[in-house]
Design a protein around this nucleic acid. Structure first.
Lengths: 139, 139
DNA sequence: GTAACTGCAAAATATTTGCATCCTT
DNA sequence: AAGGATGCAAATATTTTGCAGTTAC
């Protein structure tokens, strides 16, 4: 188990427990985003469904991961880069859903574009989800 | 009941029924998007929850309405402009969620911006959801 | 030792399916 | 009359809550 995992937990004032390490390592080892169901499966029945719900919620609250809304309305989660601490999360990157392999990726290098709103509207956050075919599936 | 409603249904080869007319008129009379729960409430217990599920699904299939994914993962639906017929729906406008009044709007005048993806990725659809404060709440 | 975390059971919600009946065309 | 749509009941699935036992610090 990487030291990095413990670091992340400690940095966020969370106790280091088995389920948190396991779930966090799933996120670190996989490029794409994970849905609740993926985590239950991948973890291999090791821990309770309720623990997964609570752990994910805790991670979102602390800004360790963020939720990605997709068109088919399955919630997926992905690691936040840098410091999205204290629930004040701001994405500056876009999300990509591959229609072929079904994976969801954060394209960290693609900055969310400017959006010009009509007069009277103010913006606090912009979420961009692009659907298409990813690099791997395009080969 | 507007004639327009019957037209929309007929145009899509759907029988004109009470629940469909009612639900469609809710969408036509309201600027913002509606969640499943909103519809059940606003309809005033007139029809079954199951009917609402099935009607919404039918409308989405026919391209009469489209689903809007939001960060808090509540599914909302809004009317499609023009012809998004036959399940081949493409948004060209952005969605706006007001953090103040909670409403979701389609900003039909704001075109989705170009997104420059890394090499190897191809795009089929872009979904943009902006959060902030809407015109009415900013006064 | 204390506060925080987990697992189990159960409650509360949400969604889907089957089928008999009713309505639209 | 025939096919489609609705409503009800019930089966599934999902998410939340309470609480007792366990673990991290």
């Amino acid at each position: 188990m990487h030291e990095e995992i413990k670091d992340i937990l400690k940095r966020n004032n969370l106790s280091v427990t088995g389920s948190r390490e396991k779930i966090l390592s799933l996120f670190l080892s996989k490029a794409g985003a994970l849905a609740h169901g993926d985590i239950e499966k991948k973890a291999g029945e090791k821990f309770d469904r309720v623990t997964v719900y609570r752990t994910l919620q805790t991670f979102v609250d602390k800004g360790i991961i963020h939720a990605i809304p997709t068109a088919d309305n399955s919630i997926r989660y992905a690691l936040c880069k840098d410091d999205c601490s204290g629930g004040h999360h701001h994405d500056h990157h876009i999300h990509f859903v591959c229609n072929h392999c079904g994976n969801t990726y954060c394209l960290d290098d693609v900055v969310t574009p400017e959006v010009r709103l009509p007069n009277g509207y103010t913006t606090s956050q912009i979420e961009v989800v692009v659907e298409g075919t990813c690099k791997a599936c395009n080969k």
